[in-house]
């Protein structure tokens, strides 16, 4: 599907939603729920409120649809709203409770129970460390380093300049590595990823 056709499809779907078609509401949700859920999960970690936040994000999306001007892809526009919802959630809670239910279906496929537990603990500590960061740094870091988005994309999603985003990500990394110096499990996770990243660049 070309970009233009995709944009036309977005506009048509948005108009159907604006006219109050329930089928269109369901279609939009089914098309984008993975994206919204994924973004929230990467920013917040495993969280008991994630379903509610997904729902909140979509309700915000539907409330704002009449203002959608098709200047960007609908997916990008939805991402912005999702990031705002996550941002508000973090700001409201100040410090999120430590993720305690990070054992997911995918993680249960890990090779050994020992490795699985270590990995789960590492992720838990990562999000615990992230919760120490300022909201802006945390969101920028999560979108870039965990969700794998480019700095420009992060800048567009959080409504900041590229340099500001780079600075936020750098600060987050610096804090994480500082915490990792006293936490071998977190250090292992960060170092392992750095090694993988370096290896893939060779």
């Amino acid at each position: 599907m070309t970009a233009q056709v995709s944009l036309v499809a977005d506009v048509l779907l948005v108009d159907r939603c604006n006219r109050g078609e329930e089928a269109a509401t369901r279609e939009l949700f089914r098309t984008y729920h993975k994206r919204v859920h994924g973004t929230l999960y990467r920013i917040l970690g495993s969280n008991r409120d994630i379903d509610d936040l997904t729902q909140d994000s979509f309700i915000q999306v539907f409330k704002s649809l009449p203002t959608f001007r098709a200047e960007a892809k609908l997916a990008t526009w939805i991402d912005r709203i999702t990031v705002r919802v996550a941002y508000r959630h973090i700001a409201k809670q100040k410090k999120l409770p430590l993720p305690n239910d990070t054992l997911d279906e995918e993680q249960s496929m890990r090779p050994s129970p020992g490795h699985q537990a270590a990995s789960r603990e590492a992720v838990r500590r990562l999000y615990s460390a992230l919760s120490e960061l300022p909201v802006a740094s945390r969101v920028a870091f999560a979108l870039h380093e965990i969700d794998g988005r480019s700095v420009s994309e992060v800048a567009s999603l959080v409504g900041a300049s590229k340099s500001a985003c780079k600075l936020r990500i750098w600060r987050a990394r610096r804090t994480l590595f500082k915490l990792a110096s006293t936490d071998p499990i977190l250090a292992e996770l960060l170092e392992a990823n750095d090694q993988e990243h370096d290896g893939s660049q060779l």
Binding site: T25, F29, G45, Q107, V123, L190, N193, E196
Partner: peptide, 30 residues
């Protein structure tokens, strides 16, 4: 650094999905 591969996003099961969808449709209808 790319932590994405270490933190896979779990699938949402159909039951949860249907619950969220129902909630959204109810809210949107208002």
């Amino acid at each position: 650094m790319n932590l994405g591969s270490k933190i896979p996003v779990p699938e949402v099961d159909e039951l949860r999905l249907a619950r969220i969808e129902r909630g959204i449709v109810n809210e949107v209808s208002k």
